[in-house]
C-alpha cells in the first residue's frame, strides 16, 4: 500500500517541482545576455567612445532613437530617425575588416545601412554628414 502511494506521490512531487519551475520562469523570466550587468557595462564603454551620444540626442539634425552594442563582433549600432526615414550607423572594429568603410577613424570603420522604408535612397549629403559627424566624436574619445 505504501509503495503504491509512493508510486503516485513521488512522480506527482516531480511534476509539482517542474510545474512550479515553469510558473516561476513565466512570472520572473531569467536574465539573459542582453540585459545582464556585463552587457550594461559594455554599453557604457560604447557610450564613452561615442562621447555620451545617447537616445534622444541629435546628430546633424537626425534624432538618435537607439544605441546598442558592442555585440559579439564588437559592432556598435546607432539608429537615426528624421521624419519618416530611419537608418543606422555601425561602428565596426577596423582590425581585420573585410571591406573598406565609407569613413574610418584610427580604430573604427563606420558603415551605414538598415534604411527604412526599404526603398528610400539616402542622399550622399546625408551619408557624408552623419558618418563624418560620428567619426569626429569617436576620434575625440578612441
Amino acid at each position: 500500500m505504501l509503495r503504491q502511494r509512493m508510486g503516485v506521490l513521488g512522480p506527482l512531487l516531480a511534476a509539482l517541482v517542474a510545474a512550479a519551475g515553469i510558473a516561476w520562469g513565466l512570472a520572473d523570466p531569467p536574465r539573459t545576455d542582453a540585459n545582464d550587468a556585463g552587457s550594461a557595462r559594455t554599453t557604457a564603454a560604447a557610450r564613452a567612445l561615442l562621447g555620451g551620444l545617447a537616445q534622444g540626442d541629435t546628430l546633424v539634425g537626425w534624432r538618435v532613437t537607439a544605441v546598442s552594442g558592442p555585440d559579439n563582433d564588437g559592432v556598435i549600432r546607432i539608429q537615426l530617425v528624421n521624419r519618416d526615414v530611419a537608418f543606422s550607423l555601425m561602428l565596426s572594429p577596423l582590425e581585420g575588416a573585410l571591406e573598406q568603410a565609407p569613413v574610418q577613424t584610427e580604430h573604427w570603420a563606420i558603415f551605414y545601412g538598415h534604411v527604412q522604408p526599404a526603398d528610400t535612397a539616402l542622399s550622399r549629403n546625408v551619408i557624408t554628414a552623419t558618418t563624418n559627424a560620428l567619426a569626429n566624436r569617436v576620434r575625440q574619445h578612441e
Binding site: 555601425m90 573598406q100 551605414y112 545601412g113
Partner: peptide, 19 residues
C-alpha cells in the same frame, strides 16, 4: 582584406551580414 578591402564599396552592414 588587403586585396578585397580596397576593391569593395559597402552597401550595408549589419552584425550578421555585409552587402
Amino acid at each position: 582584406p588587403a586585396i578585397w578591402g580596397p576593391a569593395l564599396d559597402t552597401v550595408s552592414k549589419s552584425p550578421r551580414l555585409t552587402v
